[in-house]
Nucleic acid binder design. Structure first.
Lengths: 100, 100
DNA sequence: ATTTATTTTGAATGATTTTGTCAAAAGTAC
DNA sequence: GTACTTTTGACAAAATCATTCAAAATAAAT
């Protein structure tokens, strides 16, 4: 249930790699990676995919972690956060059946 | 389970009001309202609140509808959409307990 | 069917947000 | 202390988003 940032920081530290190394692989400045790891910046899809490749973890897992972070952020200061997520879920389910 | 746009279009048509009238109340161009009703543009919070006032419906209901639309949009083309929403839900729940 | 009212579209513009770079400051380990 | 890593914040470029406007399309009324 960790954020993407926490997840990749742990992966990186377990391998004892500096930000520099991972950032180079992603082709971004290490400052950005630092911010991503601490949840100060959002990664983009390409970066998430490359991170999965780099750390050899399931791409889908990382994508879900990343996307759900974005959703949580979007409803963060709403007291209707939970309700909103539940309604969104129903809408997605409904769209699924509807589409063809 | 309707989108915000569908909801307010119905409200407006039931009262047989032109876009112009509602748009004037919101202090926006009618073109924008037209787009909002058809889901081509996102409303902002202030507009949603004014819409609730105008149509005399529960502000919270409209806000949830609006916010959930945004979430659905964000995960729309993901095949992990549902999973993502569920994970987001867990994260929100977790944050709730954590935050004192 | 012509006129009138309403709605939709899209191009242009402006504002805001996002994304990134860089260099200096802060922190860690030796 | 020095060397290395991480964090910070100012700044610029790019991308996204909101808005306006006028014209085109649609619908309604007579």
């Amino acid at each position: 249930m960790n954020s993407l940032g926490e997840t990749i920081r742990k992966l990186r530290e377990d391998k004892e790699l500096p930000l520099r190394t991972v950032a180079a692989f992603l082709d971004i400045d290490q400052a950005i990676l630092s911010k991503i790891e601490r949840g100060q910046r959002n990664a983009n899809r390409k970066q998430v995919i490359k991170l999965a490749e780099f750390f050899k973890v399931k791409e889908t897992d990382l994508l879900i972690s990343w996307l759900s972070d974005k959703l949580v952020y979007e409803v963060a200061d709403e007291d209707v956060a939970l309700k909103t997520l539940q309604v969104a879920e129903e809408k997605v389910k409904y769209n699924k059946t509807k589409r063809k």
